[in-house]
Design a binder for these strands. Structure first.
Lengths: 208, 208
DNA sequence: ACCTGAACACCGTTCAAGT
DNA sequence: ACCTGAACACCGTTCAAGT
């Protein structure tokens, strides 16, 4: 936790409010973003934040818009269209994972679509190369987008709790016939592996 | 919103606290569950709730445990193992969807595993019939569980915001070569279809 | 064993008043 | 144009005191 700016000579700006709010969220989590704490961090009265951004809800909208405009495109590569789509999806997952708090907020506000806009167009280009267009391409894009967003949302939420196990060994009879299964289920979830498995299964279906 | 019980002759019980808390959440959402509102609904002082359940966090734990013990098993059918697994997955999705608020809480608390325990054992039985056991079965169970939980979490969160579109038509150049794609992308997400697509792709991979 | 009111340290937000 | 303090209606939680 950085110490609050005690006094300030410059007026606060809207961008500065957004910057500081982002910092508070990324250093802690969304619950650290209170209007009073934000004001303390900025060295102003709470009420002056209301002048700049309206209210807390509008501030959250601004944070999401900032995220969207910061995301931009992502580097990806591969020899075949399928390899490029795989690379693209993995890169987007990693990129979103840098802002897990924000993507949860974006999701709640129905802004996931806008967030993925650059990815959609790159994906549409790759799909067109393998002859997938129109509603089929839309389905593929929707499914991949869902898979990526879900992976980040699920891993993020789970990582706040106890290390998420898939299974609870105690729920299985001690005499259960497949001890290797029970043992494997009690390991922590390997999210990247689950992601890759789902991705590759989807691509088998979606990319001819 | 039901009117609060004005006076009461019986002592409050822990179960009654949990019941009322569940009702508050399911009739509204998690933000409706405040200790003060709960007390008003029960017709007691706020502080007496603390005597029964500890604090708000412990109450949320109790709600999740209640959900888990209420879930139990689910009916499913089908001629082939694959059909039965598909039916099982769909039924679990529907079942969880009856308690979207609670499953978000369960997920945050790392209790998804316990929630899915009955499903895991049914699934293990079906997988064994097609020769999938051990770590392979654990992977399959983990992937299916992730898919079901993600579907509910994503659809639930999205449904609080504006009707989620996959794509924003305005983000595409008006001259884009595939208008059918752009049009299809701007329709609301069909979550059951996305769920079934992902499920069937996973099963192609996981069930021989 | 169960309940109570008072108190504390927080929230978001509005408003009238300042420069 | 920008900032301020006071005030309101909320939170969760603790505690000493009641029966």
């Amino acid at each position: 936790m950085t110490s609050a700016t005690a006094v300030r000579d410059q007026p606060v700006t809207r961008d500065e409010v957004v910057d500081t709010a982002l910092r508070l969220i990324e250093e802690n989590d969304i619950s650290a973003l209170t209007m009073r704490r934000l004001a303390a961090e900025l060295g102003t009265a709470v009420t002056s934040i209301y002048w700049h951004v309206g209210n807390r809800d509008a501030l959250l909208d601004l944070l999401v818009e900032r995220l969207i405009s910061d995301l931009g495109n992502v580097r990806y590569a591969g020899r075949t269209p399928r390899a490029r789509i795989t690379s693209l999806a993995r890169q987007w997952r990693l990129r979103l994972w840098e802002h897990p708090h924000l993507i949860a907020i974006a999701h709640e506000r129905g802004r996931i679509a806008a967030m993925f806009a650059p990815m959609q167009q790159a994906l549409a280009g790759e799909l067109a190369q393998v002859g997938v267009t129109g509603t089929k391409a839309a389905t593929a894009i929707g499914a991949l987008q869902f898979h990526i967003a879900a992976s980040v949302v699920m891993e993020r939420t789970a990582s706040r709790g106890p290390s998420a196990m898939v299974g609870d060994p105690a729920a299985w009879p001690a005499s259960y016939g497949d001890p290797a299964l029970v043992a494997a289920l009690s390991a922590p979830v390997d999210y990247p592996a689950v992601f890759d498995l789902g991705l590759s299964a989807l691509l088998d279906r979606l990319v001819p």
